[in-house]
């Protein structure tokens, strides 16, 4: 009897501790002053990449180095990112620190993929996301809703839960989303530190979100 009970109690205790940690990590929003910070951007694919590059264009060079994560089946995002970074370096040659890196992980969901297999592929990319996040240890994760961003954000949370590093997660919902959140949005509104929407209709539905007007 005891030999059954001990593992169950132990597992329960671990679960309680993890949930507590998750709660603490999600709650803590204290601002540490800093001069620069490393940024991890989940660029995903297609329109998501275009949108997020528009946002990045407005950020100062204090956001450095920049790490980009793209889906491994995505050919065009890498080109877009490279030309964005080249353009940036041209415009502001004074910033010596224009380091950027592109990482690839498997897509967690292809367009039109079924729900059940989405769960499996998401688990697979989560398995690969954690080593990446652990290696990069970014200060800030910025994403705008390609499926790939869910495993990345969960991995970033895990860093906090394990007490390795508190990563700030900022989610910007795509301009496409006027009335309802995307699937990634519905998950990450609970897990992100700041959740930004671009239409007032969403702000009304989700008071936790931040509305800054149209930013792309």
């Amino acid at each position: 009897m005891a030999c059954v009970l001990i593992p169950v109690v132990a597992a329960g205790a671990v679960a309680v501790v993890l949930v507590l940690r998750l709660w603490i990590v999600c709650r803590s929003q204290d601002v540490t002053p800093r001069e620069s910070l490393s940024l991890l951007v989940v660029a995903g694919s297609g329109g998501h990449t275009t949108e997020i590059l528009r946002l990045l264009g407005s950020l100062s060079s204090a956001y450095s180095p920049r790490h980009y994560v793209i889906a491994d089946t995505d050919k065009m995002s890498a080109d877009k990112i490279n030309s964005f970074e080249l353009d940036r370096a041209d415009r502001d040659p004074s910033t010596m620190d224009s380091r950027y890196y592109i990482h690839r992980i498997p897509r967690s969901r292809e367009v039109q993929q079924s729900w059940l297999s989405t769960v499996l592929t998401t688990l697979h990319s989560m398995w690969l996301s954690f080593p990446l996040i652990h290696q990069v240890k970014p200060d800030l994760v910025l994403c705008n809703g390609p499926g790939t961003c869910v495993p990345i954000c969960i991995a970033a949370l895990l860093l906090g839960i394990l007490g390795i590093k508190k990563v700030i997660i900022v989610y910007v919902e795509s301009i496409c989303r006027v009335e309802t959140l995307s699937l990634s949005g519905k998950i990450l509104i609970h897990l992100s530190d700041y959740f930004i929407v671009q239409w007032p209709t969403l702000k009304e539905k989700y008071p936790r979100s931040v509305y800054l007007g149209r930013i792309v």
């Binding site: 601002v31 002053p33 407005s58 950020l59 700030i168 800054l212 149209r214 930013i215």
Partner: peptide, 15 residues
């Protein structure tokens, strides 16, 4: 769009 509003917000919240 006004991405500068985004950068101002972000700089504030990350300190």
């Amino acid at each position: 769009g006004q991405p500068e509003k985004f950068s101002a917000f972000l700089s504030k919240v990350v300190g």
